[in-house]
Write a protein that binds this DNA or RNA. Structure first.
Lengths: 199, 199, 199, 199
DNA sequence: TATGAATGAGCATTCATTCAT
DNA sequence: CATGAATGAATGCTCATTCAT
């Protein structure tokens, strides 16, 4: 018997709920200290049900990394690497990036954990790394054009891109925890400096 | 009868060996997947002996973070915040920092893990954070002076310091793993840019 | 979906089985030499299941003391402290008590262990002691009335009650192990003597 | 090389010290929770030395039971089972026994533990039991003579002896903990009652 | 004899996963 | 599909005992 549309919707909703609670718990307590029981409890369902939606704990963690990455990644990549005015694009982009990062306090914790144990979280590290490559490449084009146009100093393009990613990633390490934009805005000029703006 | 000098030395050596192997294992497999048995095995002793040197797994992990931090921290902080020529000092310092960081591939992994789970690794996070504060403050003085002398653009001092720390910390996130200095040197100019050098 | 009635019953039965086997093992081998594995094995379940029914070994031991105490205690206390003829009541009561005690060879061993280590088995000692107080008090009333009516010699009421408890408790220390009533009956007159019957 | 007299003395003293501290610890915390390290610590020596004096923990516990039993037993047995006036002898003996028992709060705890786990502490139980037999027999003679002389009611001799032992043993179960003799004296008449004194 | 580092057997407990209801 | 009882592998830690110094 096929499931009704309502049931489908309800299941989708439940899946989202599990994912959301799992993200929170994984971020705060880490992979091992987050038990399936805790996730189920937070999601208001029985722990057996978690296995209806995710084949294993590993799978759940993977989903927890992957699905938001798709959204976040898309947003981080939504800039024009062929913009007429690279410098202007960079300025806009840093602003957007810093804002985005500041709004993902929980999620970025997960990244840290994966990045801190790449051997252990192989699959997760893989997709993160893949995104990093993409990001690096696209940024590279923009940076290169900026340098060619004389807007940016001549620096090793890849190194700049990596440095910028490090910068973004590291922002979350600060103890400045609230997402009050005013604080985060201070980092925008710093981020822009990384690209080596002339004058 | 107290222990002989030779025995004391042997014990110290054994302790160091445990610490070293534990660092490696923690870095590669993470806290939970590193069992005391594995550490003991790697160190070539019985697992019971680990407890002769470290009261618990937690304690071992803590030592693994703390003791190297003292050395590394000292090196990172060994610059003159009142240098006559702040810009020159910064250039030298970035070079040294990037080199140091590039030589600590294993150890920095541990940092990531702690930073990714500050609630779980409270004590460890605490001392890391403490060092961050120190570093930030000392850097702040140097940056401020650079700005006052017109060598650096006017940027929010604290934000620059934090950005620089993020940059350093994040370098390890790249997949460029070998400590071949030539690669790492590319990041030096990027790091310097962060401070907003005039001209 | 809640558990079916049958399941509930089965679980209750299993819990009882664990409790029973644990009691036996604790009594024979003591707390420390009784491993959860042995209990599970004796109960015919996996050791993991023991934790489904009892949160910890301590908890299991506690239940092992508490639950039977409630039953046994009620029986030991089921006498009329305001009986018209205290002496008769005492005679009946000693008979009943000695019989009861003779039927609890296993369980009383647990008492000994708790009484032998009150600091270690604090909670268990507490409830035992509480029962002792109750028993002592109720016995006290009966004894006092017996003395007032001239049926019993004048002795320190509390001391008599305590002595009687000691007597009951100590019976189990004898090597006469079978619950053949004929042997146990011999102790009834001795118990009665403790109250100081006149004539 | 033979040990000097002084050394012998010192060793004997040390052995006594260990035994004393072990008795205390075993009594309060039980066999398993009393570690050799704790005993050594309490005795002010290194734990390795404990094994110089006692072959194993079991042996130490055994000594802890056996040696005091010899002294205590002798005192408890120092009465004249052929006394001209059995009743008088019994009165004196109960007084002495109750006093003795009241002065052994720590040691009697050990008895309880052994009696609560006879299978586990086989050897210890054996010697305790052996003493019980001796005591029972000697008491039996006295009781029998008392009954023949018409001083005591006719009761099952063995049962009386066992009851009396139970009574003595159980006294320690009361919460009256101080060795203030006045309290303990109250139990003397109760003990005497057990023998069924005529009139 | 005294010391205490080294050893490893032994155990309580956790928790992902399975599966009957 | 939802539930939660059952399972047992895995692991940190304790501690008696040995033995080199």
């Amino acid at each position: 018997m096929a499931l009704s549309e309502d049931q489908m919707k309800a299941m989708h909703k439940k899946r989202e709920k599990i994912l959301q609670e799992a993200t929170m718990l994984f971020a705060v307590h880490g992979y091992n200290d987050t038990t399936i029981a805790k996730v189920a409890n937070a999601a208001g369902i029985s722990f057996g049900s978690v296995f209806t939606y995710f084949a294993s704990k590993e799978e759940l963690f993977y989903a927890t990394i992957k699905e938001p990455l798709e959204k976040l990644g898309e947003e981080l990549l939504s800039f024009d690497s062929n913009a007429v005015n690279p410098m202007k694009e960079i300025e806009a982009l840093v602003q957007k990036h810093v804002l985005l990062i500041s709004q993902q306090p929980v999620y970025l914790r997960l990244f840290q954990q994966v990045l801190g144990q790449p051997e252990r979280f192989k699959r997760e590290f893989e997709i993160l790394n893949q995104f990093f490559q993409l990001f690096q490449n696209k940024m590279g084009i923009l940076i290169k054009r900026g340098q060619e146009l004389g807007q940016l100093r001549i620096l090793h393009v890849e190194a700049v891109a990596i440095s910028y990613l490090s910068f973004l990633n590291g922002l979350r390490l600060t103890t400045i925890d609230g997402p009050e934009h005013d604080v985060w805005k201070l980092f925008v000029p710093c981020g822009i400096q990384l690209f080596g703006p002339v004058e």
